[in-house]
Design a protein around this nucleic acid. Structure first.
Length: 293
DNA sequence: TGCCAGGCCGAAA
DNA sequence: TTTCGGCATGGC
């Protein structure tokens, strides 16, 4: 089910599923599961932040609804439906995921249950790549701080009637022009040279993210590895979250822990099929936020 | 205070 | 080819 009714409101647009079915989108979980670093719960109880150069906020509205603050009805289809992946039937995906995994999978069914409502977003390519370069050997609160800081410094100012002043994620050109020292001064540490290399490659066209989007997974992966500071984990996260490669399964310290804790040594995540990336995200959320409860 | 964080690089073995 | 120390910083 992916049809929606749109109701224009004064500060945004209310989305309801056309047939009253569960929308399966939990903003709190989706923006708190480490795929996107620019959203926080605000005083109104919305998950608000900046994406695609727009200030926006999300709040669940009953089981079948979603309130999108700072957006219009005509923006929904081309912008937010795509970005939030509301075109994907998660009821079906969740069913396929647990079926693919089979009955002998120790935890995916439990992880799916507690993680229900997480959607893998279709984020901006450059923002995803750059954000996950920053994420390496770092913790989520600090990753968010650094990203906010560089956005305030080198992003475009956005004056939103709903959210006030916010800043877009800086372009590769802006960061390339800023230079490594200025980026280092934003407390990015040893990542400054990696961010700079990525920004310079993208700004110069030496790395064409549009072209990467047209490549198969292996080609795209190997192309991203040409950036200094981009290894397997960062490349897979960039592709999963920024290029809609929902079948990729990035392995970080948390996922490694999950695999060691619950799965046999020879476990192959490709059993999760084209939704391995979602399985990964469910397992991450399950372990990180619930301690495997 | 010390350990760790959505890792990767470069050198050593 | 695989292993391993080092890395900047700050959250907890």
């Amino acid at each position: 089910m992916c049809g929606y009714k749109l109701i224009e409101e004064k500060d945004g647009v209310l989305i309801k599923t056309a047939d009253g079915s569960d929308i399966i989108f939990d903003p709190d979980k989706t923006f708190d599961c480490g795929q996107c670093f620019r959203f926080n719960k605000d005083e109104e109880g919305r998950m608000s932040g900046v994406a695609l150069g727009r200030a926006v906020g999300f709040k669940q509205h009953g089981r079948d609804g979603l309130y999108i603050y700072g957006a219009s009805a005509e923006e929904f289809g081309p912008v937010w439906k795509e970005w939030l992946a509301l075109d994907v039937d998660y009821e079906k995906v969740n069913r396929e995921l647990t079926e693919n995994a089979g009955e002998n999978d120790p935890v995916i069914a439990a992880a799916e249950k507690v993680s229900r409502g997480i959607r893998i977003l279709r984020q901006d390519r450059w923002e995803a790549l750059c954000s996950f370069i920053i994420s390496q050997n770092n913790n989520i609160p600090r990753i968010k701080k650094i990203i906010e800081a560089i956005s305030e410094r080198w992003g475009e100012r956005i004056d939103s009637p709903v959210f006030g002043t916010r800043y877009s994620f800086p372009t590769a050109e802006a960061l390339a022009n800023a230079g490594e020292k200025a980026i280092y001064d934003m407390r990015t540490g040893f990542r400054a040279k990696y961010i700079t290399d990525a920004a310079e490659k993208v700004a110069s066209g030496k790395l064409d993210l549009e072209a990467v989007a047209g490549m198969n997974n292996d080609e795209a992966f190997n192309t991203l590895l040409t950036v200094k500071g981009v290894g397997p984990k960062v490349a897979n996260c960039a592709l999963l979250f920024g290029f809609g490669r929902f079948g990729l399964f990035p392995i970080d310290v948390w996922i490694k822990r999950v695999l060691e804790k619950y799965y046999p040594a020879d476990f192959d995540p490709s059993v999760y099929g084209e939704w391995a990336g979602l399985a990964q995200q469910y397992l991450f959320y399950y372990e990180r936020y619930l301690g495997g409860q």
